[in-house]
Design a protein around this nucleic acid. Sequence first.
DNA 1: GTCCGCAGGTGGTCTGACCAATTGATCGTT
DNA 2: AACGATCAATTGGTCAGACCACCTGCGGAC
Lengths: 243, 243
Amino acid sequence: MTAASRVVTSVSRTSVADQLHAQLRTAILSGSQAPGSLLPSERELAEQAGVNRQAVREALQRLRQAGLIDIVQGEGVRVGNWRSDATIAVLLDGVFQADGGLDPDIVESLLRMRLVALVDATRRLALSHRDDVVATLRAMVVEMRAEPADAPITPRFEFWGYLVDSCGNVAYRLAFNTQLGIAERLSSEVLAFLSAGAKLIDEYDRLVEAIAVGDVDAAALEADSILGPALRMFEIPSQTDVS
Amino acid sequence: MTAASRVVTSVSRTSVADQLHAQLRTAILSGSQAPGSLLPSERELAEQAGVNRQAVREALQRLRQAGLIDIVQGEGVRVGNWRSDATIAVLLDGVFQADGGLDPDIVESLLRMRLVALVDATRRLALSHRDDVVATLRAMVVEMRAEPADAPITPRFEFWGYLVDSCGNVAYRLAFNTQLGIAERLSSEVLAFLSAGAKLIDEYDRLVEAIAVGDVDAAALEADSILGPALRMFEIPSQTDVS
DNA sequence: GTCCGCAGGTGGTCTGACCAATTGATCGTT
DNA sequence: AACGATCAATTGGTCAGACCACCTGCGGAC
């Protein structure tokens, strides 16, 4: 921090179990470990990686929790078919490709799920149109308006987070969290790219007012026009139909 | 298996790490471990549970992966705010209450997410209306028709699984898997309850034909009328509005 | 009072051992 | 030869005890 200038880059401070977990996850998700195949034994993995068996176990147990592998005593560790067995938790780890880039397919999938979940949450909210919720949302819109024009673009996580929270659907909320976890690791450029629609303050305004008067369809429409743009930027490649 | 009749019930064959994981998860989700509070140290937990520290570590690492706790070296294990930090993976564990029953709120949340995800998947499929997909779906409906009237009610997982697979959205597929994982652990009575709409073969038929001709809205409508009933059975308690 | 440094507690890693379940080959009987 | 019981090898599951890396907080030096 002070006199001595920085010479080395920050050394890997991630635990060996984490690294192992990442390696195995990538191997499985990329398909280089075929579904149904048997992984080396814990002892062998430990030796290969040059680490303790306990570290191997921690990594394997976490992979098991995510539904990526099947562990049975006496037999070994079998690679599962993640497309049919894995839970949505692997998305959080799977978006990032080996080279550090984003997997556009997964991003599009997530954006689409975000869209339908948030639009439905908006619908539900318009159905109940509770006064306190509307008041809070209105205050948030006022705050948006007060922003200087050159304010940095953000995905409006507070707004949508509050909205999804108020609709009372735990699944939506947790799915939203999953995306927050991903967003945290994105570069600011990509994040800005995903924030298309964030500056449509008028749409936010109409959205809140539609909720206030209980106009379900209008509210859903506004939510769609705010959240849709980011998704549509990803859909370009899929314009051609299968003949 | 042979002569000696069965005297004892199947003894708990779950690993100590699994039991520990379940205990801690319940404690956190139920709120008896307040968010922000510090858990006992690994060594202390191990002693309390009468197990080895390695087992404690495996359980804690899995809780960390699910976003339920925050572990920092030198400080300890801090309980997170699962509503804002946890990923959707905890649903798979969280639906089951301490008494073994289902948490109706979570079930409703999941059903609603299933509904919107599958309806949107249907939309996407109708947009592309690929011939091979339509052919497979038609064959599935024919098979449904061939069933005897007294066939056991099933949630038609194969149908919806294939549908969600064909629409190309990984997030939908994984969310679907999460629900499969839950369904596996449900009693047959509850499962039948959740299968409301499974016998609406005519609706399934119209759904497939709407996809075949690319009628997006009609397809979505049919999907909704098939999947909606199960959800609506859960919504009864929430008919009264907040004044 | 401020600051430095050390002690104690925490998670992270390692070694090496034993228990428990599965597999598959081996050997006996039929 | 075919079948079945037996046993050794391999795998995951558990344990004990130790050391390292990191953070916190107390206490003494200034």
